[in-house]
Design a binder for these strands. Structure first.
Lengths: 266, 266
DNA sequence: GTCCACAGGTTCACTATATGAACCAATAAA
DNA sequence: TTTATTGGTTCATATAGTGAACCTGTGGAC
């Protein structure tokens, strides 16, 4: 492993539950020699990627990160930022992955990736603009938005499931609560026969849902187990996808997405 | 120079005018061997600090920066973030450096640093809350805020220079325009006899002025040349101070703060 | 006070790791 | 076709990174 990789790995040690760490902490967590870790920390600090508390001598994430992240936000278009993670996710899932943004009550395609080797695939129309209440993306979005938005959506006939009953706000609220608890929304044949999907919301810097990511797959691919696998992949990418557009996942949802044993490991 | 430092220096090559660069670009800009630069780029990419465009093979700043900057914003308190840069500036200037935030029309102390070896020093009272229109900090703030705010400030008697004439909005507007053009505000004996200061605003992520940084020094220290030196130091720190709180300096002001030859060098 | 444990940090012989000249392959203009 | 780019790779060389042992300061425990 390159020295650079070792040093940068040190930055990954920081988290909400471990906002700063001393030399010995870093040494223990990495298993490397103290002198090595120390020189890495010093190098990172010299470059502004860490800063050291004058009193406690503990290290914390430095201002260079903020500066460079700002630079990235200004120079890299949003689509480019999520592209890499979306491609990765599509490759891992072997299915169609779709990033949508909400404009009014319409889901519009931001980017999609389709890396798979299944002979059977979901076909789709990027300009299809399916109704909000009929898609897993729309439901994922609503589940993490204000109640107010749901009421407005229900009042707007264009969001309804085409050809279906008028939506019942109470039962919808129950569905959304279930989604919020589960961490993702799902859809099985309800919009188009033979097409299933799972979806999660993407959040901005203020923690508001602003977009969605969904994986669509032929229902024929399988049942609960297929859904569970895709949902797991989706939720594992959730934090990175929001981070890519400069956002952060609310803590409670993050806890659902990241099983405790994974969080302990990081 | 450590390998880590060399690699991290690569990240500094990116700017608004140079949002992405190829292997050869990076090689030229650093003067290092192509193979070396390439392995550094690959290492940074593997850690997510860079990402490579699939088509052009050019590198741009990666998502790990956004993620870590978000982590920093969530875990490091604002005061801590500006402390390091403020201390540095105070040491370089050899004078009292003051970070203030505006609450209503009051400037309140966020942090101050006083690293100097002059026998004569400016004494100050952190709870003094000097009136907005009487301080370089206040004027620096207003010069980069909306006109509307000035009108409200002028209407509020508490912002006036104590014991002075009621402020004249037109002449004030002229003063503020001069500050905006110069890049910093200055004050010479107008609030307290024998005390001078220079000040600049700090900006948030949306580019709004939200705080100020000032250097106060005894007027007896000297005239234009002392002011020019301190102002230059102040403006050099401007970008880092705003970046420390997660903000960015508006492009036009950034151009004033950073002489063209310095920008070309970076 | 003394002792102990742990903290952050430094030294220096040793060797693993980074380096760079020369190389390949692809593309685009001349 | 030739030439000049580009991005990327190889491998002998030596530089830069490593880690056991060391120093120093601090905060208990007794």
């Amino acid at each position: 492993m390159s020295t650079i990789a070792k040093a940068l790995k040190l930055l990954e040690l920081f988290s909400e539950t471990r906002p700063q760490l001393g030399l010995s902490d870093a040494q223990r967590l990495t298993g490397r020699d103290k002198a090595t870790v120390h020189r890495h920390l010093v190098a990172l600090e010299a470059a502004g990627f860490l800063e050291q508390d004058a009193d406690s001598r503990a290290y914390r994430l430095g201002p260079a990160l903020t500066r460079l992240a700002g630079m990235r936000a200004r120079t890299v278009p949003e689509v480019e930022m999520i592209r890499a993670e979306t491609d990765r996710l599509s490759r891992a899932a072997g299915e169609l992955v779709h990033i949508s943004r909400l404009h009014g009550f319409d889901l519009v395609d931001v980017y999609h990736a389709e890396h798979h080797d299944h002979p059977v695939r979901v076909s789709f129309d990027a300009y299809g603009l399916p109704p909000l209440l009929a898609t897993s993306s729309g439901m994922a979005y609503l589940a993490f938005s204000s109640r107010h938005l749901l009421d407005m959506a229900v009042a707007d006939q264009r969001t309804w499931v085409p050809g279906g009953q008028p939506p019942d706000p109470d039962s919808l609220r129950g569905d959304l609560a279930a989604i919020a608890q589960r961490g993702y929304a799902r859809n099985r044949d309800s919009l188009r026969l033979g097409v299933s999907s799972v979806a999660i919301p993407l959040f901005d810097a203020a923690g508001r849902a602003v977009a969605t990511c969904s994986i669509a797959y032929p229902t024929s691919r399988g049942g609960k187990q297929v859904e569970a696998r895709l949902a797991r992949l989706l939720m594992q990418s959730g934090a990175a996808l929001s981070a890519a557009i400069g956002g952060t996942v609310p803590a409670d949802l993050h806890a659902i997405w990241t099983p405790s044993h994974e969080r302990a490991a990081s």
